[in-house]
Design a protein around this nucleic acid. Structure first.
Lengths: 239, 239
DNA sequence: AGAATAGTGTCTATCAGACACTATGCA
DNA sequence: TGCATAGTGTCTGATAGACACTATTCT
């Protein structure tokens, strides 16, 4: 028996923290369906006749991320280091989120989408982000300014927010939303932005100090100039 | 531009606990590739020309579960209550696990599989489990007797075990591996079987009593006869 | 000097882990 | 009566939440 095949796409929920506020990257669709509607960046999975030209789901996610978020040209993939000093994808945390495939979620036919989420520090973002096949690309406050979204992208976004909020409590993912050298307050503000609620500075310092004790975080020379007392700098030790 | 479409399948990691041992359901493949090799139950997602005949990913998972685990005939879906008193799928916990799509994972071509895992109490299992298009179906001890598996099913199984182990610590999923009336020791043995390590009876009792206090568990009349002192019975309050 | 931000200590409640004996029912 | 299993209490260490003041730097 022969089976009909659905289309498979990859969508990405890209998060960053700007001005102590959790933001998500949205693109305005140029084509039907949902033309002129905001949507998550994404696109079709590349499937080739020759298996060695196929891409993995994760590679597709990185490709979409590079195109939509960093504005890479199509032939300048993160795997091959291009000649231009491009924003570094190794500063990006990428994780598969969930697969959405309800019939009818795309009016064009049966489309299964494998959703990923990414955490990107503001530090590595390009000042402007030209989309490849889209009209506009912009950061939106997750808390305050999410517009109506195409397809079932509101569900995908909700699931991604839930995942990041939960995972930040037990995994070392907050470091992907902070500069490579960061202050205690900066890291705390990431938690505040993601969870959407205050985090007592003394209680956070206790947790922070424990991570320093455990070698997860190390002090680094220098200070961050702020309006008042200078803040000490730290870095995250991968592994 | 037109895109090639991959095939989409749904695979299920079905767990149960028998004789205080975590078991997984495997089927012996009848067809190439990997004929005569053990594999996770699964099959192609039904995609129709008419959208109203399409099935969701979860429905496909339930369908495979019914066919491979309970031996339902194809036209006796859980949605429509068949005339025969069939094992109840409402006793089954089903959750999406992860989507696997590495090129080359299936030698026939590009196949994306959406993996689910299921927890089924031994109580509702049929004595024998005739597979529909497979030679043999059998429960294997996760700890002691996993044979070489087809495709990347060993990876899928490993991820499912990891998920269940982690989730059992904070979510109410152990109740899906125990009879509808259960004793304190039976529930503890489920934790022991899943985690693969001892759980002090007094420490578990403390946790158990808290759940009774919180109304998650209720005492129920009657006792379970064991070799020694009779054990009190409890039930889980959904919600 | 004043404004702004960094940095710090204690108390309490909850929870997990380690540890061993008594109570009851059945054969 | 003896065997098998159920059921129970305490101490300690780790951690989170609630709570406010002092230290430093810059203007």
């Amino acid at each position: 028996m022969k089976y009909l095949r659905p289309s498979v796409t990859v969508d990405i929920v890209v998060f960053t923290v700007i001005d102590n506020d959790l933001k998500v990257l949205l693109v305005e669709r140029g084509d039907e369906p949902f033309a002129q509607t905001w949507a998550l960046p994404g696109g079709y999975l590349n499937v080739s006749e020759k298996p060695d030209q196929d891409e993995t789901l994760e590679e597709a996610a990185y490709r979409e991320l590079a195109e939509e978020c960093f504005g890479f040209p199509d032939d300048q993939h993160p795997s091959g280091d291009g000649p231009i000093a491009a924003p570094r994808l190794d500063r990006v945390y990428l994780e598969q989120l969930y697969t959405f495939g309800t019939p009818g979620r795309d009016p064009r036919g049966r489309v299964i989408t494998v959703a990923y989420y990414a955490l990107v520090p503001e530090e590595v973002l390009p000042p402007i982000m030209p989309g490849s096949d889209t009209i506009a690309t912009r950061w939106f406050s997750v808390e305050h300014e999410i517009p109506p979204l195409a397809f079932d992208h509101a569900d995908i976004l909700a699931k991604a927010v839930e995942r990041v909020r939960g995972k930040m409590n037990y995994a070392s993912i907050a470091f992907n939303l902070v500069p490579s050298s960061f202050t205690k307050t900066e890291l705390r503000n990431v938690h505040v932005a993601v969870q959407g609620k205050a985090y007592d500075s003394r209680n956070f310092a206790r947790r922070f100090d424990r991570m320093v004790l455990d070698g997860v975080i190390s002090k680094v020379p220098g200070f961050r100039a702020t309006g008042g007392k200078r803040a000490e700098l730290f870095r995250f030790n991968r592994g």
